[in-house]
Write a protein that binds this DNA or RNA. Structure first.
Lengths: 199, 199
DNA sequence: AATTATCCATAGTGATCGATACGAAACCTG
DNA sequence: CAGGTTTCGTATCGATCACTATGGATAATT
């Protein structure tokens, strides 16, 4: 799992996996059938052991704002754990892949989409109980949060520390506050420039 | 360039490049020496032809808020151009790489770091001319913006439309407004929960 | 017009990929 | 303790990787 996490699916050779696990080729193939199912096993294990913060954050009986805050701060911690590869396996596993490995790339994309959908579901629940700012689009804000987490994953991979990721997360959370104070925003192609404060 | 952009450095084989360019092996090696220098040529070309929006946005004689706004909205457009691969080559070129290709991965990481440094430089200029909200950390906010752009790159790769990316960008810009109204934030480990508005 | 020189596409190089077939050691049974 | 079976490690499989050497066609020169 760590090797796939660090180098991605295709760049991780079976030789590296064999050496890391101390197994001979037949042992690997008897245990995991082939490389693809081994990777899928690593995916599910990653989901079970490293991503618990997300399901806990989204499932906790707390206000929506607090849930989102736990989600982003949990990501900051999970993406920069000492002794573990930086970022998220769902992002670095196969962001770009050869045509032969596109099935794996699509599967990881599905994981990312599912994460975004889980966020949207939590936001929709908040909307239902009146816990969400009025002018806030559930899908749009979910895409923003998922995007921020993906971006944190890359920043973590580039060596960002826990503190830096937490700062990033809290800056991102600021959008949650302001979004509630605005009208529903309908982004248009033409510029509505100059509307930003200039300090 | 498009092939490297779509599949990344390692997953793009010379056979694919040959077929796309209609060249024979000796022609490729006479023209580009080897795969690595060919990729670097594609990188500089990408920087010249696809990333102009960023240098324009950061160099334009406009208030800092407008510059940042142009940066993010430009990214929304650049990362979802029809007929081009989604996202940013600097991100998808080699986010995860084999040990043999780590030189390439490090080079792309340097590009990303340079982008963040350019943002920080623009923010510092804004701070110097009093154009930036008081309690806003230059480095922290630059890391946030670079992270958001990286996240947009992944969302684009996952099929996000221009409009969705623009919405994401404008949501991210909201943090710019609120950051100015707050005190300088010093993220701590312990929870300062419940401080978020709940709509 | 004959010969030499130059260029270029095809074929092939060693290395490594994921995946397997064979020989040896160990183990259970009689 | 012997025989048969099963397991397991080594050596290797075909395919593909980035990359290069060689033969043939073209062009230039005498």
């Amino acid at each position: 799992m760590h090797l796939f996490w660090e180098h991605g699916y295709e760049a991780t050779s079976l030789a590296m996996l064999r050496e890391a696990m101390g197994l001979t080729p037949p042992q690997i193939y008897n245990a995991f059938t082939d490389k693809e199912t081994l990777f899928r096993k690593a995916l599910t294990r990653y989901h079970q052991t490293e991503i618990g913060f997300a399901v806990e954050a989204l499932g906790a009986p707390v206000p929506t704002g607090e849930a989102i805050r736990r989600l982003l701060l949990g990501a900051a911690e999970a993406y920069s754990r000492p002794g573990k590869p930086g970022g998220c396996l769902f992002v670095s596993g196969a962001l770009a892949a050869s045509p032969q490995a596109q099935a794996i790339a699509d599967e990881l994309k599905a994981y990312r989409k599912a994460s975004e959908a889980a966020i949207a579901e939590r936001l929709a629940k908040g909307r239902a109980i009146g816990d969400l700012p009025e002018g806030l689009s559930v899908e749009g804000f979910a895409k923003y949060l998922a995007g921020v987490m993906n971006g944190m994953s890359i920043q973590a991979r580039d060596g960002a520390s826990v503190e830096e990721l937490r700062t990033l997360a809290q800056t991102a959370l600021a959008a949650f506050a302001i979004e509630g104070q605005k009208q529903a925003h309908h982004p248009r192609n033409e510029a509505d420039a100059g509307s930003l404060p200039r300090g």
